[in-house]
């Protein structure tokens, strides 16, 4: 299956195109998880990261579905 992945802020440099905030496609096995997607871009699956799948908070072992949008942030905040 293929998912859309977006890496933000300082993680942008880990994307194939090296750009923060630009989506790219990742191919995973049918039962792929967030952890598997992170492995593809060589980001260690350990906290703290902020993970959204289709706009909902998710964890490393959550299953992904074809066409999902996976967004990853390093620890950030503002206000």
């Amino acid at each position: 299956m293929k998912i859309e992945m977006i890496l933000y802020a300082s993680l942008g440099k880990m994307a194939p195109h090296k750009n923060a905030g630009s989506p790219f496609q990742v191919e995973l096995e049918a039962d792929g998880t967030v952890r598997n997607a992170l492995e593809k871009v060589e980001i260690p699956a350990r906290h703290p990261l902020i993970i959204f799948v289709n706009g909902r908070h998710s964890g490393f072992d959550d299953r992904l579905n074809d066409g999902d949008r996976l967004a990853i942030f390093p620890p950030v905040a503002g206000g």
């Binding site: 933000y8 802020a9 905030g21 390093p74 620890p75 950030v76 905040a77 503002g78 206000g79």
Partner: peptide, 12 residues
């Protein structure tokens, strides 16, 4: 985090 991108890192 706050030093690198400022509070506006929250937009995304």
């Amino acid at each position: 985090g706050l030093a690198a991108y400022g509070t506006n890192v929250l937009t995304n």
